[in-house]
Amino acid sequence: MPYLGAAFNQEQIQNQLERLNAKYTLVADGKLFIQTAQALAEGKIVAWMQGSAEFGPRALGNRSILADPRVANLQRDLNLKIKYRESFRPFAPAILEDDVGDWFDITGSSPHMNFIYQAKPGVAEQVPSVIHVDGTARLQTVSKVGNEKFYHLLQTFKSITNCPMLVNTSLNVRGEPMVLSPEDAFNCFMNTGIDLLVIGNIVLLKTEQDSQLYKKYHYALD
C-alpha cells in the first residue's frame, strides 16, 4: 500500500495542536471508532488523519474527508462548502472488501481507487452521493490487512447503518495540496465546513474551537 509519506507521533500531534490553541480530546481506540462512525451516521463531515500519508494521487483512508454516502444532497454540499469546487464533481466510495460484491459488479479487490465499476440495481438509490450518472463508481476496497484503522471505522459505520461504505475524498481544498501535518489538518478543518477532525486518537469538534481561528485562511470559489 502507498502509505509512504510523513507520519506524526502522539507527542508531535499534541505539540502542533497546542501551538495552534486547538481544543481537543484524547480518545481510546474503541470509543474513537464509535464516536466517529456515529458522527458520520448523523450526517457530519469528518476529516480523518491517520498514520503515514499516502504517496500518490488518491486519499486512501489516511488523509481523507469522510461522509455518509446515503445523504442525497451531499455531493453538492461537499463540493461547495468543503472542497470549494464545482458542485457537479463526483466523489468515490470506500467500501469494505468483504461486502463489495453485494453492491458492485466486481470480482477481487480495488484497493487503490483506480478503477470504475458498475453498481448493482438499486444501489444508486441507497448511496446516491457516490454513484455517477451512468451508474458507476470509482471505488476503493478496504481490508484489515491494507488499512486496519480505516477498516475498523467502516465496520463500525456498517454496524450502525447497515451500509459498508463511506464517501472518501482527499483532505484538502481546491488549489491546495493534500494535508500532510496536524497543523495542515487543523487549518483545513477550521476554514471549511468540516464538523469533526480526527488525528490519530485525538478528536476535535468544530463547535469547541475559538471562532477567532477562522480568520487565518479564507478560500473562495471563483
Rank of each mutant, 00 (worst) to 15 (best):
D77I: 14
D77Y: 09
D77F: 09
D77L: 13
L78D: 02
L78V: 04
L78C: 03
L78K: 01
N79G: 01
N79H: 01
L80N: 03
L80W: 02
L80A: 01
K81C: 04
K81T: 05
I82K: 00
I82T: 12
I82W: 00
K83T: 02
K83Q: 04
K83W: 00
K83I: 02
Y84E: 03
Y84G: 01
Y84C: 03
R85L: 05
R85Q: 05
R85A: 02
R85D: 06
E86V: 03
E86Q: 12
E86D: 15
E86F: 00
E86P: 04
S87F: 11
S87M: 10
S87R: 07
S87I: 09
S87Q: 12
S87V: 08
F88T: 06
F88K: 02
F88G: 07
F88Q: 04
R89F: 00
R89Q: 03
R89W: 02
R89G: 00
R89K: 13
P90Y: 06
P90S: 04
F91V: 07
F91Y: 08
F91N: 10
F91P: 00
A92H: 08
A92F: 10
A92N: 11
P93S: 08
P93L: 08
P93H: 06
P93V: 09
P93R: 03
P93E: 04
A94W: 00
A94G: 13
I95Y: 00
I95L: 04
I95C: 10
L96C: 07
L96N: 07
L96Y: 03
L96T: 11
L96R: 01
L96Q: 05
L96F: 02
L96E: 06
E97L: 08
E97A: 15
E97W: 00
E97Y: 00
D98Y: 01
D99Q: 15
D99V: 06
D99C: 15
V100R: 08
V100T: 09
G101L: 05
G101V: 07
D102A: 13
D102S: 14
D102Q: 15
D102H: 13
W103K: 01
W103G: 11
W103M: 04
F104R: 05
F104C: 12
F104I: 11
F104N: 07
D105L: 14
D105G: 01
D105S: 11
D105Y: 14
D105R: 13
I106M: 14
I106G: 04
I106R: 05
I106D: 02
I106V: 14
I106Q: 06
T107F: 11
T107I: 12
T107A: 11
T107R: 14
G108V: 12
G108E: 10
G108H: 06
G108F: 13
S109D: 09
S109R: 12
S109L: 10
S110D: 08
S110Q: 07
S110V: 09
S110C: 14
S110L: 02
S110R: 02
S110G: 03
P111K: 04
P111Q: 06
P111A: 12
H112C: 11
H112L: 15
M113N: 12
M113I: 09
M113F: 05
M113L: 07
M113W: 08
M113T: 09
N114D: 13
N114V: 13
N114H: 12
N114P: 01
N114A: 13
F115C: 13
F115D: 14
F115L: 15
F115H: 13
I116Y: 07
I116A: 13
Y117A: 13
Y117V: 14
Y117H: 12
Y117R: 10
Q118N: 09
Q118Y: 08
Q118D: 09
Q118H: 12
